[in-house]
């Protein structure tokens, strides 16, 4: 009985996302963006930026401007610190993308048909999942923080059950595989077996920079460059680790329930 009254003391603490925007992102360095300039940086600056980045996320385009791959970026902020005129932190939390190409900053315009094809294929596949989905999480060599952020989705602040999203104990009942971690040799067969055990249709989400391209952990004698090297990944979630909102955005994107952003 005392717990009952305790449970009622604070009223509703749950976010209204995705119906309304949540402004939590304002306090949080979620990603790095490239500032677009009229003048192009000179060659030395570009070389310094590329050299500075520990994961090789920064490169230069054929036109001589800087670009950054969020799929490799661990948001260490070295570039923002040294070259604030070219890089800045982004506070946007809806970062998940259905194609790896979309993680390039500034955005590369992917051919409309190509993107359309990816989206409609996914939409077709998840048509039966719209009302409610069950998720199976698999750790393929994470550092442990992704698990915290995924677990956070179940606390009252995010409470994803309100959206019909549930976590499943068995892969047999799961529609979505939420895979975190760099992809270690040791997890490879367990990962494949788990995905094999999931019924069709299924969606695979790569959670975190490590899972997308290996982050800072790869190359190593014991890892692959992300889980995409051996699995058909549908949604990519950048961040090291991605915040719960970003992971939620990815799940909504997977089942076609996001607000049409990106």
């Amino acid at each position: 009985m005392p717990w009952l009254s305790r449970g009622l003391t604070n009223g509703v603490v749950t976010t209204r996302y995705p119906r309304r925007n949540d402004d939590y992102g304002k306090t949080f360095k979620a990603a790095v963006s490239v500032r677009v300039h009229e003048t192009k940086p000179d060659h030395d600056v570009i070389a310094n930026c590329i050299d500075l980045c520990p994961t090789g996320a920064i490169s230069s385009t054929d036109q001589g401007s800087l670009q950054l791959d969020r799929g490799s970026c661990i948001v260490c902020g070295f570039c923002v610190q040294s070259f604030p005129e070219f890089f800045e932190f982004s506070h946007l939390l809806e970062l998940a993308a259905s194609s790896k190409k979309q993680l390039m900053m500034p955005y590369i315009e992917e051919s409309a048909e190509n993107l359309q094809a990816i989206r409609s294929e996914l939409a077709e596949r998840v048509r039966s999942l719209k009302r409610s989905v069950h998720i199976r999480h698999i750790d393929a060599g994470s550092d442990g923080s992704e698990e915290w952020e995924i677990n956070a989705l179940l606390n009252p602040i995010y409470d994803v059950n309100r959206l019909g999203i549930y976590f499943s104990a068995s892969p047999r009942h799961a529609d979505i595989a939420l895979v975190s971690g760099v992809g270690t040799l040791g997890m490879q067969s367990a990962l494949e077996d788990t995905l094999e055990a999931m019924p069709e249709p299924k969606v695979v989400i790569a959670v975190g920079t490590d899972a997308i391209a290996g982050g800072l952990v790869h190359p190593s004698y014991s890892t692959y460059a992300g889980i995409g090297t051996s699995l058909p990944v549908d949604i990519w979630v950048p961040g090291s680790p991605p915040s719960p909102f970003t992971i939620l955005h990815a799940i909504l994107l997977a089942i076609g329930k996001d607000n049409g952003t990106r």
Partner: peptide, 11 residues
């Protein structure tokens, strides 16, 4: 625990 071995020390 080998499933998660990432070879961090070498890295």
């Amino acid at each position: 625990v080998f499933h998660k071995h990432r070879g961090i020390e070498k890295r």
